[in-house]
């Protein structure tokens, strides 16, 4: 036995092996750092490029003006308004439906084949390319339901797009509610709905809000489904109702970027800056709301 122990110790303490292990460790340390830095560097470069081109073009007039064939006069106002209206309406449609679905699936639905089937489908829908939702929106909302190429049709289409993500993140938030709290509520003579509103939703709301806002900010950057639904690339008026035709920031940016005049590249960059600011603002709202409602469970 002692012989075996000595052999083992000698093998383990083998200086060559030890050095090799240390080198390997250093190598992977470096490699993993490079992986991290790769994303950061690329992002920083993109940001630098955009800011350099776009910042000089960013002005109050740029926000207030309509698009124009002259780069100097071009503005982003209708697209900005279109994007904001679209995103607001999308949230109003998708949030209650998504959270409602998640509550139903997690708390009410029985554990049967049908529920499994629905859950599987929702997970799959989250992976469907966005342009497919555009086709669906065109067929259903624009044509069959007669909404036309309006903000409303666009919002319903976008709502469909973000719905699976809202449902899945809400389900996860609801599942994270400790069973012991639900039991405490039921043991006090409450119905399921009262437990949902009294314990489950208050506890899950930070997670639900985070998931919702992240998915909505994804929708903010989407262009493909809206092009299919019929968002315009040139709008000379500001949308005033949800039935108006519209354009959005990503489409406007795409449009400018494909213009032959070189200055339009800079206009596009300025548009990207506006879009980035809105995205950052939306994400900050997510963080603020999450922290506000964050409930810390001490163990």
């Amino acid at each position: 036995m002692s012989v075996l122990k000595e052999d083992l110790v000698r093998l383990i303490d083998n200086p060559v092996g030890l050095r090799r292990r240390k080198i390997k460790n250093k190598f992977f340390h470096g490699l993993l750092f490079l992986c991290t830095i790769f994303g950061v560097v690329v992002l920083a470069f993109l940001l630098y490029d955009i800011l350099k081109k776009g910042l000089p073009w960013l002005s109050v007039d740029f926000i207030k003006n309509f698009p124009s064939r002259f780069p100097k006069k071009s503005g982003i106002y209708p697209a900005l308004l279109g994007s904001l209206m679209l995103i607001l309406l999308t949230t109003v449609i998708a949030f209650p439906v998504g959270v409602g679905t998640a509550v139903y699936l997690e708390e009410y639905a029985g554990n049967n084949k049908f529920t499994e089937f629905i859950k599987l489908n929702i997970a799959n829908l989250a992976g469907v390319p966005s342009i497919i939702y555009g086709m669906l929106g065109l067929a259903v909302f624009v044509r069959a339901l007669g909404m036309g190429r309006s903000i409303l049709a666009g919002s319903f289409t976008m709502a469909l797009l973000v719905l699976p993500i809202i449902i899945i993140s809400s389900q996860e938030a609801i599942r994270s509610v400790p069973g012991i709290l639900k039991q405490a509520s039921y043991a006090l003579g409450t119905t399921k709905w009262q437990t949902v509103t009294g314990v489950i939703l208050p506890y899950a709301i930070p997670g639900i809000l985070t998931g919702t806002i992240l998915s909505v900010s994804r929708a903010l950057g989407e262009a493909a489904p809206l092009i299919v639904v019929g968002a315009l690339s040139y709008v000379s008026f500001a949308p005033s109702s949800v039935m108006d035709s519209f354009t959005t920031l990503p489409i406007q940016i795409f449009n400018w970027a494909s213009m032959p005049k070189k200055d339009f590249q800079n206009v596009a960059a300025a548009g990207i800056i506006v879009l980035l600011i809105i995205l950052l603002a939306v994400n900050s709202i997510a963080i603020i709301l999450r922290d506000k409602y964050q409930i810390r469970m001490k163990d």
């Binding site: 400790p178 012991i180 709290l181 039991q183 405490a184 509520s185 039921y186 043991a187 006090l188 003579g189 409450t190 119905t191 009294g198 314990v199 208050p202 506890y203 409930i295 810390r296 469970m297």
Partner: peptide
């Protein structure tokens, strides 16, 4: 059962106050 649990209270193994 909802009404029953009003009459028959329960205290659990681990303290489980609501985060309120």
């Amino acid at each position: 059962p909802v009404e029953l649990r009003r009459r028959v209270g329960m205290v659990f193994q681990r303290p489980n106050p609501f985060p309120k």
